[in-house]
Design a protein around this nucleic acid. Structure first.
Lengths: 193, 193
DNA sequence: ACGAAAGGAAACAGATCTGTTTCCTTGGCG
DNA sequence: CGCCAAGGAAACAGATCTGTTTCCTTTCGT
């Protein structure tokens, strides 16, 4: 089992990065909580920065796939899947170790534009948005990109609001707004007086 | 001028915290860029944490008041002011030194709930949301709290999206979604077909 | 002009950070 | 059994961090 130490190290590192940030999490603490020695860290990763990047890329694929799968399992009806995004988000927010989106948090600490970390964060967000646009396309709305971008914005807003202020308010506002935007995107509305 | 050194120090600190985060910004760098000695820092503030908190509270009042004033100056029509939120946000995003919302970034680094930093961030967000709800009330929509929470969510989402991915997409999606939600809140819509 | 206060420069202390190296243990496989 | 690679423990180096202290200069009010 050579990969299991590496995987475990990355899991612990990810959890600590989420909770205390990247600059706020020292290597010694990661190693201590992972029960792993410095030697192991530096045989698997060149530096802390490389560990950070590896954690982000791993989380990108694992979390995103889990998120998409959960949304798709909520319903087979494309339109319902658009709303299911926020049910899945709600469950995520309610997890005991929810500390917001690690990519959003990362960008708050690394502002330089042309940087591996920033690229990883942009990639993640783009793929989430693309997934939502895909759902909108499957639902045959008129302008799937418009709706996808709107729902994506709502999701980001909900994540941040759940993190900073209030999870229930975030979920409720997101769901009610999403409902209005989705209905509108199906364009069955006409103004009355 | 005794307060001017203190004010200047806080300005420089705020800019660096925004760009590089709180743990990522050392005191020496702040002092170097502010052209101020350590002695001055520690006569005005007990610790770096106290400086951080002072910066957040100062920014809370200054930025928030500026934001609200700009929105109110955009129009005297309550309904237009709701949309004006996103015009003001757009100008903010386009500023050369836009690095997202410092309060969102702070929460990414300080996760402990019962903490002065977290309280300051919650307070800020609550006051922004209350301001938007107030605008909604002035516009005489049926459920101002619902619309206020929705628009607040859109604003947060736009901030984060502008920071991580794309300013134009963020602004466009926010404005189009806000328009739909505001129209809906004026309840002149009825489902057809 | 004189005294007091403010602040700059810099040394210093002690902690913590990343990263390297050394030495020893342990466990797996031929 | 015996060998060897993997990894733990810990010392170590060098940088950087927060915070204190000392000494000297400047400046401002009376």
């Amino acid at each position: 089992m050579t990969g299991s130490r590496r995987d475990h190290l990355m899991e612990v590192a990810r959890d600590l990065f989420m909770e205390h940030g990247f600059h706020g999490t020292g290597i010694d603490r990661i190693l201590g909580e992972a029960g792993v020695s410095k030697k192991t860290l530096y045989t698997h990763f060149r530096s802390k920065d490389e560990l950070i990047l590896a954690v982000l890329k791993q989380h990108d694929s694992a979390f995103r796939n889990s998120f998409m799968r959960q949304v798709e399992q909520k319903s087979s009806e494309p339109r319902d899947r658009l709303m299911a995004i926020f049910d899945v988000a709600e469950a995520w927010f309610d997890a005991p170790n929810f500390f917001g989106c690690v990519f959003i948090n990362a960008v708050g600490e690394y502002s330089a534009e042309d940087t591996p970390v920033r690229s990883a964060c942009r990639d993640y967000k783009k793929q989430i948005t693309d997934f939502i646009i895909r759902l909108a396309k499957d639902a045959d709305v008129k302008e799937p990109k418009v709706l996808g971008d709107q729902l994506s914005l709502l999701l980001e807003g909900a994540i941040v609001t759940a993190q900073v202020s209030d999870k229930e308010q975030a979920v409720w506002a997101a769901k009610s707004a999403a409902s209005v935007l989705i209905d509108k995107a199906f364009q069955g509305y006409v103004k009355v007086a």
